[in-house]
Amino acid sequence: MYLLSDELALIETVDFFTPIVDDPYTFGQIAAANALSDVYAMGGVPIVALNIVGFPSGMELAVLREILRGGLDKLKEAGCALGGGHSINDPELKYGMAVTGTVHPSRILKNHGALAGDVLLLTKPLGTGIINTAVKAGVVPDDVQRRVEASMATLNKRALEIALPFELHACTDITGFGLLGHGLEMVDGSGLGLIVESARLPVFPELREYSDMGLLPGGLHRNRAHRQCRLEISPGVPQHLVDAVCDPQTSGGLLVALPEPAADALRKELRDAGLEAAIAAQVVADPGERFVLR
């Protein structure tokens, strides 16, 4: 965040990655939704974006056109201008954006600061890392793949707009560190802990099948190993739900911390808007500094 005046701060963010889906237009949409999400997670409004492209020299230019078209369509949806961009010759295709957003300095949302008695509400189901791995293994039916792609391409714009009038104590978007990592960030330094009811976790239902087959991304294992000392798993929690909290997400949903009664009202409003919002965790004083999955 960069403070321009007492009334206005800039948010600058950049994100790009290699294709996670085969269809170039969809890849463009997902990469843009993912890059824009960092602005929404801070409570901001994206105003201008720059494309970042690594493109292999022998590949058909029609592929690049489709990727850029997907990205531009998401920018239009976000009401964000495209200011240009830069491309380089790269043996491995990459696409993403540098995004500039604005926010009122007193209303910026932080990724920490959840309070005891809060709940963490998540606005998209978990499991994109596992399902994308299963897609690479060729075992995911088309309709499931389309549903997961649609979730990844969904902007967090609407979710933020609905959540902003509520008393939000913290907000972030779930990406590479999964619910485990990003959830713990929300209570870092506060001595508080999280309790996650595994039976109520919002997950793509197909996740179980692929988790049983061992189609788990490398980042999932790294996330679990990194937070191992704070992760407490009650007996009887199904393995696939342990995987769900460790699963790295691409263009995941917003995770917002707010008092429990307000969260129920927010959840209802999000659901009415067609978003698959669900309570993902409770913030508790005891056990402190733990992520308890029960």
């Binding site: 988790s211 049983d212 087959m213 061992g214 189609l215 788990l216 490398g218 294992h221 790294r222 190993a225």
Partner: peptide, 12 residues
Amino acid sequence: NEGSAENVARAG
């Protein structure tokens, strides 16, 4: 690596 080992073990 250990992660891949767990994946293969589960598949098995």
